[in-house]
Write a protein that binds this DNA or RNA. Structure first.
Length: 462
RNA sequence: UCCUCAGUAGCUCAGUUGGUUAGAGCAAUGGACUGUUAAUCCAUGGGUCGUAAGUUCGAGUCUUACCUGGGGAGCCA
């Protein structure tokens, strides 16, 4: 008999038919005469109830059916006599694939703390919460590709290993095959990379943007979606050393086009989740965050506020609030300022634009005022900055002078500058932190719980 | 990296101004129960109190250092 997934079984139940299901035991209860097994195969958050008449099965087999054990069950799908479910399987035969010693299996029927589950990340996908999060994570990945594909964007694979140390987005992880116990040095005392694998210093990427721009200036509209690595010693519920980032880059987009795309993109993803992940979202709304569905619906239904950095500073200065960090034109906005704008003043997502040139990256297009750049940050409630982007500086002289002002090693960026020499074009792009999106969509509060195997300072287990 | 809180049974926690043999709920184990829904009821076992040093007649409790985790901040996505 062919195996049926539980999701399929529950969505279009054909009672009276014989079925074969395979999955892991969530709970077992019962008495002398009848045993009830809640079986889950990961295809959906719901379990199927397997009912076994004790007299029809070997006593030792029933004893070995404990929380966590893996079973293959054949039987007839019937209407349930109980209250909790519509259909159940009247078991005809049960094959035990894998026992699960109840005394040592870490997962119980009762709830566990997120901190404990993090320590057993090799098993936590078997819980309702992580099953829901991981299914939603998959759906969001798929929706991202679908959104861009439908819009005629091309998925560009930018390198994971990079030879330039120029973007300045964060501390980097070195990539080397050198024997670290015996690192060769040049005469001047510096590390000699000439015999290293690439013959020069290399790192894991902190952003695919610069290569993404090369793609946009050939293919028109591209996006990247891949792992990103930051060796920052950041210990917060919003940072990972290894995370996934989506970076669209579009030729002929100005900053307004860029904002329009970012807003449409994020709303599309949230709408996609609402339409396709309903059961999992309902579960998370009940168990994790009672305001989740309301917040998701609100974001989809309302325009994002768009104001300039200068306007934001005025609002903050005139708010009458006491700030831990001083607000003034030219300083970067702190978490408390962003939170005030999003959560108290406007009470909705906010896009801030036209930041001072001095606090933003070298590649952002300079405004005519000579002091601001065409940057945009999308700020979300509870998350903070979920998207950062800009129109890029396409003028060769302006870009070069900015690189020199900031003393960025020009020799590492020669290829990037070349694009401004040959057929340069106005273009824009942004980066969306995938896990931060998942945080928002799931209502989870710690970024370590929206990626299967989190990498953070002092933690690379599993 | 900084500030702050915490670490006691498999899990979640209680443990009084330092005082005899460290407790509870859940889980587990054994039993009861004719359809259960995180089942219920009865019983049983389970601890180097994060690690190391110190103060003291005496430390789960006080001190110091370190480790691990949470929350906040910075850096950022």
């Amino acid at each position: 008999m062919k195996r049926t997934k539980i999701k399929e079984l529950l969505s279009s139940p054909k009672t009276g038919e014989d079925v074969l299901v395979k999955g892991w035991v969530r709970t077992k209860r019962g008495n002398k005469n009848v045993v009830f097994i809640a079986l889950n195969d990961g295809s959906t958050i719901s379990n199927i109830q397997v009912v076994a008449e004790a007299s029809s099965f070997n006593e030792d087999l029933l004893k070995d059916i404990t929380t966590g054990a893996c079973l293959a069950v054949t039987g007839k799908l019937v209407e349930s006599q109980g209250q909790g479910q519509n259909v159940e399987i009247a078991a005809a035969s049960i094959e035990l694939y894998g026992k699960s010693d109840a005394e040592t299996y870490p997962l119980q029927k009762k709830g566990h703390s997120m901190e404990f589950l993090r320590e057993i990340a090799y098993l936590r996908p078997r819980t309702n919460t992580f099953g829901a999060v991981l299914r939603i994570r998959h759906s969001m990945s798929f929706a991202i590709h679908k959104y861009f594909n439908d819009k005629g964007f091309f998925y560009l694979h930018t390198p994971i290993i990079t030879g330039s140390d120029a973007e300045g987005a964060g501390e980097m992880f070195h990539v080397t095959t050198m024997d670290l116990a015996n690192v060769p040095h040049s005469n001047d005392g510096s590390v000699d990379f000439s015999n290293d694998f690439f013959g020069k210093p290399t790192n894991l990427t902190v952003s695919g943007q610069l290569e993404g721009e090369l793609g946009a200036l050939a293919l028109g509209d591209i996006y990247t979606f891949g792992p990103t690595f930051r060796a920052e010693n950041s210990n917060t519920p919003r940072h990972l050393a290894e995370f996934w980032m989506i970076e669209p880059e579009m030729a002929f987009y100005d900053l307004t086009d860029n904002m329009d795309l970012a807003e449409d993109f994020v709303k599309y993803l949230i709408r996609y989740a609402l339409e396709n992940c309903r059961e999992d979202l309902d579960f998370l709304n009940n168990m994790i965050d009672k305001g989740l569905l309301e917040r998701l619906n609100f974001v989809v239904a309302n325009e994002f506020v768009r104001i300039t950095y200068t306007e934001a500073v005025n609002i903050l200065v005139n708010s009458g609030k006491k700030w831990e960090y001083k607000v003034g034109w030219g300083t970067d906005l702190q978490a408390e300022h962003e939170r005030y704008l999003v959560e108290e003043h406007f009470k909705r997502p906010v896009i801030l634009t036209d930041y001072p040139m001095s606090i933003k990256a070298f590649y952002m297009k300079q405004n005519d005022d000579g002091k601001t750049v065409r940057a945009m940050d999308v700020l979300f409630p509870g998350i903070g900055e979920i998207i950062g982007g800009s129109q890029r500086e396409e003028n060769y002289e302006k870009l070069l002078s900015r690189i020199r002002e900031l003393k960025i090693p020009e020799k590492d960026l020669w290829w990037y500058l070349e694009t401004r020499k040959f057929g340069t074009a106005p273009h824009s792009g942004f980066g969306l932190g995938f896990e931060r999106l998942i945080l928002f969509v799931t209502g989870m509060s710690n970024i370590r719980d929206v990626i299967p195997f989190p990498r953070t300072p002092k933690n690379a287990e599993f």
